[in-house]
């Protein structure tokens, strides 16, 4: 019986160690494995979806990996409230502090790397690719951790206005960002789109890959133990077709990030975003492992430029040679 099941597996799945096979019964005398319940992450807590709905995440061989929350519109709205509340805190933290917290995320991810590799293996990755993806995800967090207190200097300006005023422009976070993470990718895609958003002081609600959702929820556990204030990052699992309209039409969301080339999806987002003029950020990338997808310009995609003016008094007597 055992051998039959293994024989049916794809080569990648065959490398999965025993704890992935939820359907299996333990052999006599062996310990019964404790299965993980994958919940969603809202406001620093792990609730189940309020809808009580679920879907089955499976690998390419059709093996069931877990029951995932099929998040609803209400879950999204709860998450927006949490993100908006958290924005007051996260958005006004010192950049150095944000950098240290992103670094802490990388530390936590490093410590739990094996767990992510296992989950990636379950979701059809080869060991080499899984290790590479986990390593890259850690390094990407470090990359953005370093940018937290630097990109402002690159993209700011002191403006030489032709009147007696001091005038400068600097980036500020746009606010609450909804992020539909890359769908054909499990961990690195999610990290690559969340990191620049929060590095810049925004808070977000991310929708995990529908087909490969495991790492996203385990990543939420990393966030939960990394001093990231609750509500800064909220992670939902569910059906993008169902949730995409809500991610783009909510009136208290300031920007939407979307990573699919699907023109219909982009159209819906762009049209819905017009309701309150959300900023729309569309990424064309297909290879999220590539170095090309990380850049301070990605942080700027969810930043606003604020220009501040103040008069300069002209005191008599300060002549040339003063």
């Amino acid at each position: 019986m055992m051998e039959n099941i293994i024989a049916k597996k794809s080569p990648a799945a065959a490398r999965v160690n025993g704890n992935s096979k939820i359907a299996e019964k333990p052999e006599k005398g062996k310990r019964l494995e404790v299965l993980k319940t994958y919940k969603i992450y809202i406001g620093g807590k792990f609730p189940r979806t309020e809808s009580g709905r679920y879907y089955v995440a499976a690998n390419s061989a059709g093996e069931k990996l877990a029951n995932m929350c099929l998040s609803s519109r209400k879950d999204f709205r709860e998450a927006v409230v949490a993100a908006r509340t958290a924005f007051g805190d996260w958005g006004s933290r010192h950049a150095l502090n944000r950098g240290q917290i992103l670094y802490r995320m990388a530390e936590m991810l490093e410590g739990r790397k094996m767990q992510f590799i296992e989950e990636l293996l379950k979701q059809d990755a080869s060991r080499k690719l899984a290790e590479n993806e986990a390593n890259l995800s850690i390094d990407r967090l470090i990359y953005y951790a370093g940018w937290c207190d630097k990109f402002q200097q690159i993209f700011s300006s002191v403006n030489p206005v032709a009147c007696s005023h001091f005038n400068f422009s600097a980036p500020e976070p746009t606010g609450v960002v909804s992020v539909i993470a890359p769908q054909n990718n499990s961990l690195i895609g999610l990290v690559s789109v969340i990191a620049p958003v929060i590095a810049g002081g925004n808070t977000c609600i991310a929708l995990a890959s529908y087909s490969k959702p495991l790492c996203a929820i385990t990543f939420a556990e990393v966030l939960n133990s990394s001093d990231v204030p609750g509500g800064t990052v909220n992670i939902l699992t569910g059906n993008p077709d169902e949730l995409l309209p809500y991610f783009s039409n909510h009136m208290d969301v300031n920007a939407v990030v979307y990573c699919e080339k699907d023109p219909a999806g982009r159209k819906v987002i762009h049209e819905n975003a017009a309701l309150n003029l959300k900023r729309t950020v569309f990424y064309e990338d297909t290879n999220w492992n590539s170095k090309e997808v990380q850049s301070p310009y990605r942080i700027m995609d969810t930043q606003e430029i604020k220009t501040t003016w103040h008069p300069i008094e002209n005191i008599g007597g300060a002549k040339a040679g003063y």
Binding site: N159, N167, S169, I305, K306, T307, W309, P311
Partner: peptide
């Protein structure tokens, strides 16, 4: 939450100022 903030002045504009 505004793109241009004037402190102790108002309605100033300049080509060099975003």
């Amino acid at each position: 939450r505004a793109g241009v903030v004037w402190a102790n002045t108002f309605n100033k504009f300049d080509p060099a100022s975003p």
